[in-house]
Design a protein around this nucleic acid. Structure first.
Ligand SMILES: [Mn+2]
Ligand SMILES: [Mn+2]
Ligand SMILES: [Zn+2]
Ligand SMILES: [Zn+2]
Lengths: 160, 160
DNA sequence: ACGCTAATGCTACAATGTTGCAATACCAAT
DNA sequence: ATTGGTATTGCAACATTGTAGCATTAGCGT
């Protein structure tokens, strides 16, 4: 039994997080560790708000600004990826080794965002001359399974 | 006195805008007319801020809230379409008869957004069971032709 | 010309993100 | 283990983008 201490709920995984941070030349702080653990433990991108709640749940002291900056750093380092939602809130997900860029589905009812691995948005595009393509973001909108069938209320009825 | 020949550069087109509004059962107000004219006269989606500047230029009294509501109404009516940018600002474009949904290019340097007609984001996707697809938004990111070679320092690119 | 009420123009407020700066706490060197 | 330099934090103030309430104005059918 190696988990003898009164560790809250994260026995070893914290070590992985610490190493990622160290490898990128950053200081290992509670906030950073907790954030990458939260991201690693989630199958879907997390909003700043969700992350904040996760940290609060583990009793990690922090404020919005600190969290923003931790996230900024992770994105700078290429550890995490930032996704712009249709609401004005960003969401974050780990940049995983084998998972590549992918599209996302945004449920307009509950606001949940799920990853659509296997759907690569970087199709061959025909850009005008002189344009340089960096990346492509493909976001699908609609209703998730949980929100189920509903009365159609979308403002998009332009199917000609 | 409106018989004066202080030609505001829009001789008749205002009439087209008025008709669109009327056809949808809305009251023809200065703000709405000016907004649809601005949108019709632009080849690229305009942000709320840009629209506001356009109205101010024609000396149309309004405030942010009024503009927001005018835009909301246009979108509700299917007259205009709302596009979520990568910054947290929405942009608006007319829903034109023959133009269909299309992808957009967002220049991360100057923030400009241009339409990419001919690039339809609504590819056939296979969503998880129970999911209902409403629409797809494809946004390409990079540098536009004007911002050109990425060797340029961002400081040289200004907001207009 | 009149009256009903849709639309406007305020003022306040909410949500999300940024900036400046003094205090803290990582962590490498001792 | 202690120490010290500095990367991070924590707080307060601010910026941007969008909403809500409500009294006033003005479109337009009569
Ligand atoms: Mn994802
Ligand atoms: Mn467009
Ligand atoms: Zn949902
Ligand atoms: Zn540009």
């Amino acid at each position: 039994m190696r988990t003898s201490s009164n560790a809250p709920a994260s026995p070893q995984p914290a070590q992985a997080a610490r190493e990622i941070i160290t490898r990128h030349g950053g200081r290992v702080t509670r906030t950073r560790v907790a954030v990458v653990e939260a991201l690693q433990g989630s199958t879907q991108p997390l909003s700043h708000e969700e992350l904040g709640a996760a940290l609060a749940a583990i009793d990690i002291p922090h404020d919005r600004v600190t969290l923003y900056r931790a996230l900024d750093w992770l994105v700078e380092q290429g550890i995490a990826r930032r996704i712009a939602g249709s609401d004005r809130a960003w969401r974050f997900e780990m940049v995983r080794p084998h998972s590549h860029r992918h599209a996302h589905f945004h449920c307009d009812r509950c606001g949940q965002v799920i990853c659509l691995e296997g759907l690569q948005p970087s199709s061959r595009v025909n850009l005008p001359d002189g344009f340089h393509l960096d990346r492509a973001e493909l976001v699908l909108h609609g209703a998730c399974a949980t929100c189920g069938i509903q009365g159609l209320t979308p403002e998009t009825t332009d199917e000609d």
